[in-house]
């Protein structure tokens, strides 16, 4: 099967205060359609930068990004869920979820239907008229997920989406994501620094290490869903990744 996301020898540098820092160097990654790929690595390694390239928010200076996907309801074939929910505070939950559908070409009635579908997926159907400040952190993140799902993207990009939530809420949302993914069959590119989270959620995990970042190791999680957090197949992946990341940290 042809990859839905293909990064070919990607290179990206930032210029700051007259100095140039190379963040990504000669990085090649392929993601299969329907795959759940997690990218792990230490903070500041360039995971979010990588995701921003795929989202079209940053242009790489070298290499190529190929997306074999078409937009469905939104303008883009991808939709991004940020770490902080980044809801627009002046919009209700309903209008926040409908944000990506406002390109014209989507009638008001259709928009309503898509918004309601997305809100039902994240279990917030009764919150349509609330404003973001009236929601808990976990609810805000669900709305952010619904906003991304509403445009029915072929590719869902998630940038440490559960990192700022408390443990109980985080685990609840992880389970919900597994359920939503089973239902919608989306391709998911998921960035996290939490290797337990990556091992529990993903089909395949890649570790980004070094400065500039390069591909450290790739691990497949053999056990299909449903999984348990503490079962051997998951734990084994966790310890492999932990070994790789601490070796990389020691080498710096």
């Amino acid at each position: 099967m042809e990859a839905i996301i293909e990064l070919k020898r990607l290179g990206l540098s930032f210029a700051r205060d007259g100095r140039t820092t190379e963040v990504l160097h000669d990085l090649s990654i392929k993601v299969e359609p329907g795959e759940f790929l997690a990218v792990v690595g230490p903070s500041g390694v360039g995971k979010s930068t990588l995701l921003r390239v795929v989202a079209g928010l940053l242009k790489p200076q070298a290499g190529e990004l190929i997306l074999r996907a078409k937009p469905t309801l939104g303008r883009l074939p991808v939709a991004l869920v940020f770490q902080d929910a980044r809801l627009l505070p002046w919009r209700t939950v309903f209008d926040n979820v409908g944000f990506g559908l406002e390109h014209g070409g989507c009638s008001k009635a259709d928009r309503k239907k898509h918004i309601e579908t997305a809100l039902a997926l994240v279990g917030l159907s009764s919150y349509t008229a609330r404003y973001p400040h009236e929601l808990s952190g976990g609810q805000r993140q669900r709305v952010s997920l619904a906003r991304a799902l509403a445009v029915d993207p072929q590719i869902l990009l998630m940038d440490e989406p559960f990192a700022s939530l408390d443990a109980i809420t985080r685990e609840g949302l992880q389970d919900e994501l597994i359920r939503i993914r089973a239902k919608t069959k989306k391709t998911i590119l998921f960035v996290t620094h939490d290797i337990e989270e990556a091992a529990y959620l993903a089909d395949r995990i890649i570790a980004l290490v070094g400065q500039p970042a390069f591909l450290g190791m790739t691990v497949d999680v053999e056990k299909p869903h449903p999984r348990k957090r503490n079962e051997p197949a998951v734990m084994e992946v966790v310890s492999k990744l932990r070994g790789e990341l601490s070796a990389a940290a020691a080498a710096l």
Binding site: A55, G56, L57, P71, G74, R75, L76, A79, L80, F82, D84, R86, L88, W90, F99, G100, E102, H103, R147, V151
Partner: peptide, 28 residues
């Protein structure tokens, strides 16, 4: 700036779209 990035992430790249959807309501 993070809210303006949301506009970009959902394909509202034109300045007038950013103005209408994010900048003016946020500055209101």
């Amino acid at each position: 700036r993070d809210l303006i990035e949301v506009a970009d992430a959902f394909g509202f790249q034109r300045l007038d779209q950013k103005l209408r959807k994010v900048i003016l309501p946020a500055a209101a």
